[in-house]
Amino acid sequence: MKGINDTKIVQQKMGAQLKAARGKIKRPALVQLLICNKKAPVESKAEMTAERLKQWEYGNNPISLEWIPAICDVLHCDVGYLFGDYPEKTREISDICSITGLSPAAAKAIIGDKYDGFRDTRIEALNFLLVSANFENALHEIIMFKDAEREAVSLERAREKTISNLRDISEYHPNVSFLEMISDKRRAADLCEYNLSKSFVFLIEELRRIIDEEVSQNG
């Protein structure tokens, strides 16, 4: 990490990372979680307070090394994250985001919780989707639907705003061309939705075919 020889910079960086990892958890609540954590140093539990945590986050004091295992365990982050070696809370998430361009939320959805027992199932399903002959069509329809729906909703909201700004509803004079434009965009969105539903039907048919082939091959 840049500035690794500068103690103050290290303290401030680690403090900022700790605060980011804490997120919406209140300091007193995090203190209790840390104290109750099995990796917490027994001899230092009495010294762990919200004020101490605050000084760590502000970079005024160095985070005690003995507390780092408990911090990482409670906040589900790697030690490397606390040192600022990578932007996401784990190396795995950071690598996925860096290589694929996916968001952290998408990366987390892919791998899930390594301890929940469903990671292999997620990976198996994603492997099928990504190599499916029909998935590219589904991706195209998803983008087309988002664009068409966004345009339709934007026009509808603009019309609603125009009407809401009128002092008297009787003053409203429908703009025929504008209403036709809304109808066109809505029809386009509905068509994309229909095509998207068909794309996923094809995916199901493809999955059934693959399963049938696998069962046949296995006797």
Rank of each mutant, 00 (worst) to 15 (best):
K161G: 08
L130E: 08
L139R: 14
D147Y: 04
A152N: 04
L130S: 08
H140M: 06
E156K: 07
A133C: 08
E141R: 05
H140W: 05
Y172N: 02
T121V: 10
N137D: 12
H140A: 02
N175G: 00
F128N: 01
L126Q: 06
A125G: 04
D147F: 02
A152S: 14
N175K: 07
I143D: 08
L130F: 14
E149A: 14
D120K: 13
R157L: 05
N127W: 12
M144Y: 01
T162H: 12
N175A: 08
R167M: 10
H140F: 04
R119Y: 03
H173V: 14
A148C: 12
A133F: 03
S132H: 07
M144G: 02
A158D: 13
I169V: 02
F145V: 00
E124L: 09
L166V: 02
S154R: 15
E124K: 08
E171Q: 13
S154F: 12
L130R: 07
I142E: 08
L155P: 04
K146V: 11
R159T: 04
F135W: 12
V131S: 14
A125S: 12
S154M: 09
N137T: 14
A138M: 07
R159H: 08
L155D: 09
T121H: 07
R122Y: 05
A148G: 05
I169C: 00
I123P: 07
D147C: 04
L166R: 01
T162Y: 11
A148I: 05
I142Y: 01
T162L: 14
V153A: 05
F128I: 06
S170T: 06
N137Q: 12
R150A: 15
F128Y: 12
I142A: 00
I143L: 05
R150P: 03
L129Q: 01
I123N: 07
H173W: 03
Y172T: 03
E151M: 10
I163V: 13
H173N: 09
M144A: 09
L155C: 09
L139C: 13
A158L: 09
I163F: 05
S132D: 09
R157G: 00
E124W: 03
I143A: 07
S132R: 04
A152F: 02
I123V: 15
E124A: 11
F135V: 08
I123G: 03
L166S: 02
H173A: 04
F128R: 04
A152C: 08
